[in-house]
Computed example of a mutant assay.
Amino acid sequence: MATALVAGLTHRGEPSDSRGPHTRQGARGGVDLLTRVTDYTARFGPGTGYRPPTRTERRTAASGLKLLLDGRPQQAEERLSSIDLSLGTVTDSATGRRYAEITDRTEAGPAPRGWGRVYVETGRPARWSVQIPHPVADRNTERLGVGVLRGGHGGVLVIAGAHRKAGRGDAADVAHRRDTVFDAFCDELAERRLPGLQLHGFADDSAPGRDVIASTGRGLVGRADGRLLADRLRERGFDVCRAWVRSCPLEGRTNVQGGKAAAEHVPFLHVEFANALRTDDRRTARAVDAMGRLTAAWERGRTA
């Protein structure tokens, strides 16, 4: 498996022209990435269970991702395997692109830990991340995340592995906890100075008349990126509340991944989408297209 990954990743994540076969199950043309992700998240619910990782497990998960992004997949596989995470590759049948995939071996067992997944496009350096902290609980945000990953190059998709109300108390609410594997992965990305786009969903009556709430969370460095995204969303017919301009609900000021990005002076956007947008395929496609304009700027190695 590591050999197949080497074909698409080189030292420090630099692009490679070689194209090895995918190593996960699926048709010869690959697997549909959206179906793969939604089949995974379809199992999530408030009662599906969650086990908080230890500090050592969080650090090991982050170091495994670091090794992968550094172009050292064999070492990454060994490191991740030590805490029962698997590293493989999938070929997305919709785009033909190959992605390294980090999964939890306990997913199919009677007591899944709920630690999540990561997808990294192979064959080019990572430039940005899209983060989904509340799949299923924030309906269809996982679909938005796959759309953003597919719409650009150099993306890393991080998906939480449980419903936000799984486990005890708020243990699985990864957007507000520092002691999760999701946060450990996102910390590694922030420390690599990769800008992040974190997607959430809100009930339509939480912000009547608004389609999107865009915020830079605790930081200021992402304001130019926020303006670019808000402008592109507005051009596509969406009403956007810009938290850097006026008071908006659900601004994400307590979001811990946003706090880390602010400390690292890395652009981070906390973006909330109305339910009516997330449940309408055409509106969703327009929103994904708008976000693609932002990730295109990030792909060029610059912020807006």
Rank of each mutant, 00 (worst) to 15 (best):
residue 65 L to V: 00
residue 213 I to S: 07
residue 95 T to D: 05
residue 92 D to A: 11
residue 258 G to P: 03
residue 248 C to L: 10
residue 125 P to I: 07
residue 250 L to A: 08
residue 105 R to T: 13
residue 7 A to F: 04
residue 253 R to P: 02
residue 160 A to V: 00
residue 12 R to I: 05
residue 194 L to W: 02
residue 158 V to W: 02
residue 198 Q to H: 12
residue 279 T to M: 15
residue 203 A to N: 10
residue 110 P to A: 15
residue 27 A to V: 07
residue 60 T to W: 00
residue 209 G to K: 11
residue 244 W to C: 12
residue 155 G to H: 03
residue 268 F to L: 08
residue 252 G to M: 05
residue 154 G to H: 03
residue 78 E to T: 15
residue 26 G to I: 02
residue 248 C to Q: 10
residue 107 E to M: 11
residue 116 G to Q: 08
residue 237 G to T: 04
residue 27 A to W: 12
residue 185 F to V: 04
residue 243 A to Q: 08
residue 110 P to W: 11
residue 10 T to G: 14
residue 48 T to M: 11
residue 97 R to T: 10
residue 204 D to S: 10
residue 6 V to S: 15
residue 43 R to T: 11
residue 13 G to I: 00
residue 273 F to V: 07
residue 82 S to K: 12
residue 37 V to E: 09
residue 162 A to N: 03
residue 275 N to S: 15
residue 45 G to T: 06
residue 33 L to P: 03
residue 169 G to A: 07
residue 220 L to H: 13
residue 99 Y to G: 07
residue 219 G to Y: 01
residue 271 V to I: 13
residue 268 F to K: 08
residue 42 A to G: 13
residue 11 H to R: 15
residue 20 G to P: 00
residue 201 G to S: 12
residue 86 S to Q: 12
residue 228 L to A: 12
residue 188 E to F: 00
residue 122 T to W: 03
residue 222 G to P: 07
residue 130 V to Q: 09
residue 117 R to V: 03
residue 67 L to W: 00
residue 292 G to A: 12
residue 33 L to K: 09
residue 138 D to M: 08
residue 244 W to N: 13
residue 255 N to T: 05
residue 229 L to H: 08
residue 225 D to P: 07
residue 234 R to T: 15
residue 250 L to N: 09
residue 245 V to R: 15
residue 266 V to E: 06
residue 269 L to D: 02
residue 238 F to R: 11
residue 17 D to P: 14
residue 16 S to D: 12
residue 290 A to S: 10
residue 195 P to T: 12
residue 249 P to R: 14
residue 264 E to P: 08
residue 81 S to I: 06
residue 145 G to F: 07
residue 145 G to K: 10
residue 286 R to F: 05
residue 113 R to W: 11
residue 298 W to S: 12
residue 146 V to Q: 08
residue 203 A to Y: 09
residue 41 T to C: 14
residue 158 V to D: 04
residue 287 A to E: 06
residue 147 G to K: 07
residue 186 C to R: 10
residue 10 T to C: 13
residue 208 P to L: 06
residue 97 R to A: 12
residue 239 D to G: 12
residue 288 V to D: 09
residue 243 A to Y: 01
residue 119 Y to T: 11
residue 282 R to P: 02
residue 175 A to W: 00
residue 300 R to V: 04
residue 168 R to H: 08
residue 80 L to A: 11
residue 8 G to F: 08
residue 285 A to H: 12
residue 199 L to I: 14
residue 169 G to F: 03
residue 113 R to C: 04
residue 160 A to I: 00
residue 190 A to H: 06
residue 169 G to P: 02
residue 258 G to H: 03
residue 67 L to H: 01
residue 173 D to I: 00
residue 144 L to E: 10
residue 195 P to S: 13
residue 61 A to I: 01
residue 148 V to P: 01
